[in-house]
């Protein structure tokens, strides 16, 4: 059973309580009408899809009902750390710290 630490509940809870919600830190453009088609396409559809460290959104749907962000390794499925939505993307240094 994969456990995910919810940054709001401050508990490790089973994956079945959560739902995945796509890549994190994708900011909606403040003026979509000013964007070119290519820029709008990039916002809507283009994702980084990395092999390794991935920043992603998760939703504690059957728990506290909140969205938060997670750093997950897409190769090992290891959750390196989680943090509340709205916080900046953790630095490489933070991520290395969390791994050790």
């Amino acid at each position: 059973m994969l456990l995910i630490k919810c940054p709001y509940c401050q508990q490790e809870r089973a994956e079945v309580e959560f739902s995945y919600a796509g890549e994190a830190h994708i900011e909606r453009p403040s003026d979509p009408a000013a964007l070119s088609d290519a820029e709008w396409e990039a916002y809507l559809f283009l994702r980084s899809n990395p092999r390794g460290t991935h920043f992603e959104r998760w939703y504690h749907i059957h728990g506290c009902g909140r969205y938060f962000n997670a750093v997950r390794d897409t190769v090992t499925d290891n959750f390196v750390r989680t943090y509340p939505a709205g916080m900046p993307r953790p630095s490489v240094h933070d991520i290395d710290d969390a791994k050790t």
Binding site: C9, R13, V16, E17, H62, G63, C64, G65
Partner: peptide
């Protein structure tokens, strides 16, 4: 207390 899931039911 906790909101959680029991099989498929919240």
């Amino acid at each position: 207390c906790a909101r959680t899931i029991l099989d498929k039911a919240e």
